[in-house]
Structure formats: C-alpha cells, structure tokens
Write a protein that binds this DNA or RNA. Structure first.
Lengths: 335, 335
DNA sequence: CTGTTAGCGCTTTCAA
DNA sequence: TTGAAAGCGCTAACAG
C-alpha cells in the first residue's frame, strides 16, 4: 500500500520550510504571493492532503462531531443525521456516527465515537444512561436531540411533542370521535409522556373525560401495535379511534384491525406519529404527525458549533404538524 | 474542558518510563510482574485510555474501517451496518459510517471517511463511481457489498439476486399466474439486472414467453411503484401479478391498485424484495424475498479483517429466500 | 516575510 | 528487564 504524501514532501518540492506550507494552507500567517503560489503548485502536483489525525494531535481539536443515534433504520432518525451532515458541510467539521444497532452497549458506542477523537457530541438516543451523558458533558460540548438531561440546561433540541399529541387527538375529536385509545411510545423515550400529555390536553379541552382503560403502553415496534390493538379489542372497551405514538405501532394496529375484519377508517380511525417515509404508501395512507427531523439535525449541529466557538446556545423547540391522509374519518362512517 | 490523561502521567504515577507503560499495555515486550502490576494500578487509578489518534499516527494503522452506505434508512441497509459492527466487536477495529444521505457527494463522503484515517473501506452504495472505488482499492483493502467492480476480483460480498428474482417469480407461477409484471429496481443498482434475469429464468423454465410490455423501470421508491402500477393499469396489458424489485415499490403498487379498486391478493398478487421491517405489518402483509443483510455485513467485515492480515478472500454469494405472507394468492381468486 | 525548533501522545528502535 | 530518544505528520512559538 502507498505511503502518504506529507507536508515535508510539499515543502521540498516547493523549496520552502514545512511550516511555511502549513501557514499557506491554514492562512495563519502572512505569506508572499510568490511563496503561496509555489506551495499551492506543489500541493496540486503531489495531491497533498493534510492528515487530520496529525492536525488533531497537535491542536487537540479533531474537527469531528460524534453522533450517537439509536435505531437509525427509522427514516425519521436518518433524517436527523442527514440534517447534521448538511449543517456541518463546509464548516470543516465532520460527523462520525455510531450506535446504529438497537441495543449497542453504551461503552462500546462511546469507544467507537470518542476513541476517534471528537470535539463534541450529539446524542439522539433515549437508551443511553443520562449520568454517562452528563459526565461527558463535563468534558466537551454535548447536545441532545429530543431529550433533556438533568443538570444540562440549554443543551437540547426539542420537539413540541405535547403539541404533536394534542394535534393528533384534536383532529380525531374534530372528526367527532370521543372514544380514542392511545398507544404510548416506548417508556425510555421522554416524548412518550409528552405525547400522552398532549392527548390528555386535547381531551380535557373538549370536555371528554380521560379514561385510563384507553391507554396502552407500547414499545414503538410494529408488533407492539398489533398486540395492543388485539388487547384493546379483547378488552371490550368501545373505541372509534386510535392514536398511536409512532407510525410503526399504527401499522401494527391497522393490521390487527384488518385481521379482525375492521376497516380503517370506516370502522376505526388511526393516527400515527413521525411520518415515516412508508406512511404515505400504506393502505390506507396514514394520517400522522410530522416533525422536522432534518431541521432538528441542522439545529443540533449548529448548536454544537456555537458551543465550540464559546457562544451560548438556548434550548430550542421545533414544531410538529398534522398530516391528514386517509386513515382517519368521522366515526360511525360504516356502521 | 478537561485535559486527557497521557501515558506520561501513568509513567510518573507508576514510577516507570512511558515506554514501559506502552510495553505493558501492548504486551510487546516482556515486563516483570511487579512492574506490570504497578503500571496497571496507575492505569486504573488515573482511568487512562490510550489515545488511538496518537497510536495511529505512529503505527500508520488506525484500527478503523470506513463504511460508505447509501440510503441507510432502509432497514435492510441498516442491518448490513449492524452486521459490520457486530463482526468488528472485540477485534479492536471500529467502523465509521458515512454517506447517510441519499445523494451525498462522493468527494465529501470520502473526505469524511478517509480524513479520519481508515485502514480499509466497505462500500454499500451503488451510486459511488466505480473508478473512484477502484482507485481506493489500490491504496487499501476495499470490499463491496452487493456490487462487483471491474478490476477488483474477490472483493465483494454478493447476494444471490438471480435466485431471488427466480424464487419470487416461481412462487407466482406455482400459484397459477402467467401474466406477471416486473418493476425493475433502480438502474444504478447491479442487482436490478440480476433480479430481472431471475424473473426471466423462471418464466422460461415454465414455458411462459417473456413479454417486454410487462417490465417497467423503477427507482426503488414508493412513489415509483405507485406510478408504475398506474402505468401498467392504463396500458391495458392484462396482468394478474406484480413482482416489484423492492418492498417500497411494492407498497406503492399496492396503494395504486387499492385506489383503482383492485384488492391484493384477490385481484392481483404482489411480491416485493428485501423484507423491510415494515413489510410484515403492511396490509396485506407482504410476500417478499429475504436476504441476510446482517450476515452480509458480518462477512464483509470479516473479509476486510482478512485482507488486513494479508490473507486471501474469495467473493462470497449469500443466499436469498422466499417469505410467503398474504399479498399473493392464486389468480382469479376474486373474479 | 520565512525558517528552525519543540512538542502533541504514542510506539519502537537503540542502549544500557 | 528497563530507560532514553527518535520520530509519526503537523502546528505554533521563537528567532531571525
């Protein structure tokens, strides 16, 4: 395999000192136009690319942002990462992503990410122990997406989850539903409680009493939606609509209803949450809550850059909105 | 922010030379039990972790595998990455992933991945220019997943795509279908042609003449499945089944049929490809072709490790199998 | 305006 | 069996 071209090679070819090459490339000191030209030519000729590892060793800065993201197979989560990428573009910083697997060990994830030398961290993972995150927070800038950690004020990019839950439920109520079940998101996830709060708020506002028998704890997977829907049906509690706290659970619920001969939305309306890219092609296309994952990623990356520059960042809350498709309709639609 | 504990700190505390600490930690030279103990205690006490960046600088090896993966939001692709992670676990090597975005620029992706210092590369991306990959291949071990590149023999982990296409089509034929449309996968993707070849092979074997009017070029997205299905319906060509070269196109197709009042599988059978995690919860649950993405990732990682050790690797072909669910049935099922 | 030198954290000769 | 010293590729004082 081939040896790397180093700054010395460039210096030799350009007939200058290595440091001069460094100064030209980094603009960290005034250099004659002539010298600059010679250096740049040598760089071109040798196709020299500085070794960021060595740069990092010297400066103690790696120009790298570690990103820890669980369950990246969700389009929603992938988009957050995409937003981070795009905000970092042209800044000289690059993201390195880990925690692709659902249940990657915290230590391992950290070793992957930290081991490479990172200047800051973005967490989009609700499994990672908060104490560990807080600990890292003491060593470098850390931003959390869709999560808040005790002792880390102004270090989050949040989503207006309460409003999301509210919007979903209110939509159902406006359609005329009063018996609305809610499949709660995975309990590790902070948004779960907030979506539930939004659900309760909408009910309350409409004067519909909250019924605990209508709320079921899920775990975000399709299978849990399926199971919960069966449970709901078997419980005999009358219901005309389901608000599932994520799209996958909504899929599972719709399948369960289908298997029991219940059609959506004719017999039961269903609304999801996240607007995964498959939801518009589901049968029926799913009414859901859309967040702005790309925007969230961008904001998180910009926050980190800000902290790195020593500026202040204040926690921001990104909006949610309702996407009405075809899985919701007025109740009693089919009798 | 906190300064890192260095090998010197450990040496001081243990009362030995920095090099001795290195020898103890790497086992690269015999050391007294006593000295070893002192060093290990100091390491423990200071919570010392060697800086891999510095190690990399010296050794020229970074113990890092770059992974370039397009469209990682597909569960299938995410699983390949998970397989890579898991095969690397405990080897001292770590993957760093890039190319999360659909249309990330090759140069940018490379800068992210290469810039960090990687010892080898795994490509799971059919957009990346082959010449660029071949060029990298000259500098370090490179393995491609589900793709072969000219001039790079024995550098791929392949999938038995022909068999996949064959299995899907044969299943339909066994059910009694003879008019089977095929939605071809994105043309950037090598497997597209192979899946088509499998389709043709199954037809031929059954004595069913190949009809070009039944094949439609898609681009892997749900929307393309939708569009193609409308096209198919409008063409007036009679058809009782569709084999879509990926699940997302199958979703789109099913939605289009649904909109035209056609039920699946009663009026038209549909089979997909990839077995995305949502497919089992689709209505109806999708019959599809399952690959072994996790296995593929593992194999790719092991291949790279092998090459790094100077051993030989021979291209392997991983199996595909049919998963029969509820989107397929005998034709004329509903009249 | 430019070159020399030291040193980032580590490994690995070379000496003892 | 161990320590000292050089050097990986780069940057940033320090001199001129």
């Amino acid at each position: 395999m081939k040896r790397h071209v180093t700054i010395k090679d460039v210096a030799r070819v350009a007939g200058v000192a290595p440091s001069t090459v460094s100064y030209v490339l980094n603009g960290s000191r005034a250099v004659t136009a002539e010298t600059t030209k010679a250096v740049l030519e040598a760089v071109d000729q040798l196709k020299y690319r500085p070794n960021p590892t060595a740069q990092g060793l010297v400066s103690g800065a790696y120009r790298t942002i570690g990103v820890v993201s669980a369950q990246i197979y969700s389009q929603y989560r992938g988009r957050v990462v995409a937003g981070i990428h795009s905000a970092l573009r042209g800044t000289g910083y690059h993201p390195i992503v880990s925690g692709i697997e659902d249940f990657a060990e915290p230590d391992e994830v950290l070793e992957t990410v930290m081991g490479r030398g990172v200047d800051a961290l973005i967490f989009h993972d609700h499994f990672f122990p908060p104490e560990r995150i807080a600990e890292l927070h003491r060593q470098m800038p850390v931003i959390c997406v869709a999560r808040e950690i005790d002792g880390m004020p102004d270090r989050s990019v949040l989503v207006d989850e309460v409003n999301g839950g509210y919007l979903a439920t209110q939509h159902l109520i406006e359609l005329g539903h009063t018996r609305i079940a809610h499949f709660v998101a995975d309990h590790h996830f902070q948004g779960a409680a907030q979506r539930l709060a939004g659900y309760r708020k909408a009910l309350e506002e409409a004067g519909i009493p909250f019924d605990p028998a209508l709320v079921f704890q899920g775990d975000n997977l399709g299978d849990s939606g399926l199971r919960l829907a069966y449970e709901l049906l078997e419980s005999g509690v009358p219901v005309t609509a389901i608000f599932a706290a994520n799209d996958y659970m909504a899929y599972g619920a719709i399948l369960a209803l289908h298997r029991r001969g219940l059609r959506v939305p004719e017999h039961i309306s269903v609304v999801g949450y996240d607007d995964e890219h498959t939801s518009g092609f589901y049968v029926p296309p799913l009414t859901t809550i859309r967040q702005e994952p790309r925007e969230m990623g961008r904001t998180a990356a910009e926050a980190v850059l800000k902290l790195l520059r020593g500026e202040v960042f204040r926690t921001v809350v990104t909006p949610t909105r309702l996407i009405v498709r075809e899985s919701t309709a007025a109740p009693g639609h089919a009798g």
